[in-house]
């Protein structure tokens, strides 16, 4: 699906600067025309590197994000909630796989991406370094964390890199279920006993601010934003998306009968949007540096899962090798494909 062949690479070197300039021009024109860049197209090295960084971080976030919620599968309060939560956690694994595949079209291997995650050399979203203390946290994650993710991800469906945009279309379709199940879960608790209501409010209190931080640093402090927007990888600034999210959440919180833990939230008639309080960016930086409540635990669990799964990968590879030695024993492929459909 990806690789530039050796022949193409040699040819690229031989053609020299003139051809490079022509290719750069074609790339710029495609981006300007809102056309999509596809894996085998020429692209600037920095564009490729920026995409790999963002897509890897996105993929890692999906699979690390399985942990805080999977923590509650065995203690879900009903079979209905348990089935829903398992489906959601399975979706997160799927989203990770879509994104790893898309990242691989840029010439990086799956193994390399996982190695860098395990070595702490590539990041995942810092939101997953917070613990899930009660069942209500599963609801707050669905409503707020997935809600923030959707606000971030919908514009990525129009990202200039084709495989990333296509992966995001699929992911966004599935995220909607994630957000609605969380909202419904919180609603049930909010309308339940006083203790359940309090549990829901406590979860919202803890998840609100970290959810706002998911949009990344303020625009004037965001290292990659300007270039990503010029390349149309990003379509809106961090602060713009954050404000959009606040506007969406305020009425949703009211309908839940819960309050957002920010006394400064009020409607600004003049601007036609909500004002909100100052975000504690020191906390964000600390979690990013590895000092969040669960940083070590998440990475240790990921490494352990990978190491403990090694025998399964080895067994599957050994089985495949043995079957490859005895042709005709596996699959049904020796006919024209249409005939097998």
């Amino acid at each position: 699906m990806t690789a530039v062949t050796a022949e193409e690479a040699t040819q690229g070197a031989a053609d020299g600067a003139a051809a490079d300039a022509a290719r750069a021009e074609a790339f710029d024109a495609a981006v300007a025309a809102d056309d999509r860049i596809e894996p085998r197209d020429w692209m600037p090295d920095a564009y490729r590197a920026s995409l790999v960084r963002q897509m890897a971080q996105h993929a890692h976030s999906e699979i690390i994000g399985m942990q805080p919620e999977a923590n509650w599968i065995s203690r879900a309060p009903s079979l209905r909630r348990k089935a829903i939560l398992m489906a959601k956690v399975q979706d997160e694994a799927g989203h990770g796989l879509y994104l790893y595949s898309a990242a691989e079209t840029l010439g990086t291997s799956r193994e390399e991406l996982l190695d860098k995650l395990h070595a702490g050399r590539q990041r995942y979203s810092s939101i997953f370094n917070y613990p899930t203390l009660t069942w209500a946290d599963v609801g707050a994650i669905g409503w707020l964390v997935d809600g923030a993710a959707i606000t971030n991800q919908v514009p990525l469906c129009r990202c200039s890199y084709g495989p990333y945009a296509r992966a995001m279309v699929r992911i966004c379709k599935e995220e909607s279920f994630h957000q609605r199940q969380g909202y419904e879960l919180l609603l049930a608790l909010s309308r339940g006993t006083p203790a359940q209501h309090e549990m829901a409010q406590d979860a919202v209190n803890r998840w609100w601010w970290p959810s706002l931080m998911m949009f990344g640093p303020p625009d004037d402090a965001s290292a990659h934003s300007a270039q990503s927007m010029a390349w149309k990888i990003k379509r809106h600034s961090n602060d713009e998306l954050r404000r959009r999210f606040v506007d969406i959440c305020v009425p949703q919180a009211e309908a839940l009968g819960l309050t957002l833990p920010d006394p400064d939230i009020r409607w600004n008639e003049e601007l036609g949007q909500h004002d909100y309080g100052a975000i504690d960016w020191t906390e964000f930086q600390e979690v990013l540096k590895g000092n969040g409540p669960c940083n070590e635990e998440r990475l240790a669990q990921r490494r352990r899962a990978h190491e403990e799964g090694a025998w399964v990968r080895d067994a599957a590879a050994a089985y495949a090798d043995r079957h490859a030695e005895r042709p005709g024993t596996s699959g049904a492929a020796a006919e024209p494909v249409e005939a097998t459909a």
């Binding site: 799927g94 595949s101 089985y319 079957h323 596996s330």
Partner: peptide
């Protein structure tokens, strides 16, 4: 889309789990 698998049979099963949930 694409996926990794050791052989065709596993690729088919993984594809079912990944692309037709």
């Amino acid at each position: 889309g694409s996926l990794h698998a050791p052989d065709a049979e596993m690729a088919l099963r993984n594809a079912r789990d990944l692309y037709t949930r």
